[in-house]
């Protein structure tokens, strides 16, 4: 085949046609891409509008971390209403995964008023994330009471608790961040106490009664299977447990509630004991033996029992600190209030 023949052959025509079609397509698409490409700024604006439901103007806020359980990725102040939009990644998910959420923190008068919206953006390794419905996320607006979200209150269909924990951590991280930004850091009065390893110190509170006894409203963290318990414990002036009530049981299911130590459920095991008595329940002091066996609290729900035991140890060990530190002040304050009521 000579060169001349080749230029007249079908093969040449085919190559030319195909090249032309490809070239025209490429040029057309490049032009269109230049005209229609969605820029990162636009994508961000769209994401915000989707969360907000209306278009708003934002300004970027410098990011810092105030909470070990979450990383603040991005933070914006909404110019229109002063709210904050935070992108936060919560740790502690299933299989050490994370969940990244957009959180709208409602701010007015220089203080956090609540959470307007939580939207899940992405996750790492949370295969059940689809079961966290919008309905479940809307609960955050109601769950916000005192600056921290308590994991167990969030009801989702994700049976893996980790996913839930990671979302709550993300939200709490965002709340801490905004609070710090506004200068409203609440001092954690229990932070320096003993036995706070399994206690949610920010959720726990206490009150000093008129007879000098102290009532703790303790919220524990989760430990492996069970999630947190809420326990009310009253300690009298001698450091002895006089009243003990489990107000919320963190056991996985009713089966495990049934397997808990009866004396721990109704408090008969603890009542009348001081710290030495609580410590003596386990032979080795107040730490769980690694094999979970051979102790009085080793039932089918050892971890649940242990959380309650820990709460009791926290209360009996620390009651005197409260009496020495602020017993007088707080007691006085309460009497005053009582007085006003009487008048």
């Amino acid at each position: 085949m000579t060169v001349k023949q080749f230029f007249k052959s079908t093969a040449f025509k085919c190559i030319i046609t195909l090249t032309c079609v490809l070239l025209v397509s490429g040029i057309f698409l490049t032009i269109m891409n230049g005209l229609l490409a969605v820029s990162d700024a636009e994508r961000f604006e769209r994401a915000i509008n989707k969360i907000y439901g209306k278009s708003v103007k934002t300004e970027t806020v410098a990011v810092a971390n105030y909470n070990d359980n979450a990383t603040i990725d991005e933070a914006y102040r909404v110019k229109d209403d002063g709210n904050y939009l935070i992108k936060s990644t919560g740790k502690g998910g299933y299989d050490n995964g994370t969940v990244t959420c957009w959180i709208v923190v409602n701010v007015s008068g220089g203080a956090v008023k609540g959470i307007d919206k939580v939207v899940i953006e992405s996750n790492k390794g949370q295969s059940y994330i689809d079961r966290v419905s919008d309905k479940a996320l809307n609960q955050f607006t109601e769950l916000y009471t005192d600056g921290i979200i308590y994991t167990q209150d969030l009801i989702t269909n994700a049976t893996v608790k980790g996913t839930k924990t990671a979302i709550c951590n993300a939200v709490n991280g965002a709340l801490d961040f905004v609070n710090a930004l506004l200068g409203n850091v609440t001092e954690d009065i229990y932070a320096e106490f003993d036995f706070v390893e399994y206690i949610e110190t920010k959720l726990t509170s206490h009150e000093v009664n008129e007879d000098g006894s102290i009532t703790f409203h303790i919220v524990t963290k989760g430990l492996k299977e069970p999630s947190g318990f809420k326990v009310d414990i009253t300690i009298n002036a001698d450091g002895v447990v006089t009243d003990y009530t489990v107000t919320e049981n963190g056991s996985t299911s009713n089966t495990y509630v049934g397997q808990m130590h009866a004396g721990i459920l109704d408090g008969t095991l603890f009542e009348g004991k001081d710290f030495a008595g609580i410590e003596a329940i386990l032979d080795n002091g107040i730490s769980l033996p690694s094999d979970n066996s051979g102790t009085e609290i080793s039932t089918g729900a050892t971890h649940s029992n242990y959380l309650c035991l820990y709460a009791a140890a926290f209360a009996t060990k620390n009651y005197d600190k409260l009496i020495v530190d602020d017993g007088g002040n707080e007691g006085g304050g309460e009497t005053d209030e009582g007085g006003t009521e009487n008048e």
Binding site: G97, N123, K124, G125, S127
Partner: peptide, 9 residues
């Protein structure tokens, strides 16, 4: 695309 849901970490 985004495969992070399956790949985990």
């Amino acid at each position: 695309g985004d495969m992070s849901a399956i790949l985990g970490n």
